[in-house]
């Protein structure tokens, strides 16, 4: 019983998160300006990280935790660099 409850709720959550990633991807493709795309990319990173956490619960291993941590770190660095680029036109001043 608890197996079924967990299976369906986590599957449902994964589908919702996948839809959320789709929304973020739509904003990246649609734009209209560069900063809109970067906000979409940042949201895509966070949604992907949460999807990985759900995979972790589903498979019962904490291998996914490390991947989620790396995604969170890379997302921050990537978005910060892109924002810096938008502001000055150069990443390193």
């Amino acid at each position: 019983m608890s197996e079924a409850v967990l299976f369906w709720s986590v599957l449902m959550a994964q589908m919702l998160l996948g839809l959320a990633m789709f929304c973020a991807a739509w904003r990246i493709l649609r734009g209209p300006r560069a900063q809109d795309r970067v906000v979409g990319l940042d949201a895509l990173y966070v949604n992907g990280m949460m999807l990985l956490l759900c995979f972790g619960i589903r498979s019962g291993t904490d291998l996914y935790f490390e991947a989620a941590l790396v995604i969170a770190l890379l997302g921050f660095v990537g978005t910060a660099a892109l924002a810096k680029f938008l502001m000055r036109g150069e990443v390193i001043e």
Binding site: C23, V39, A43, N47
Partner: peptide, 9 residues
């Protein structure tokens, strides 16, 4: 999270 991403749209 989905509501937040819907906000992006």
């Amino acid at each position: 999270t989905l509501i937040g991403s819907l906000g992006l749209v």
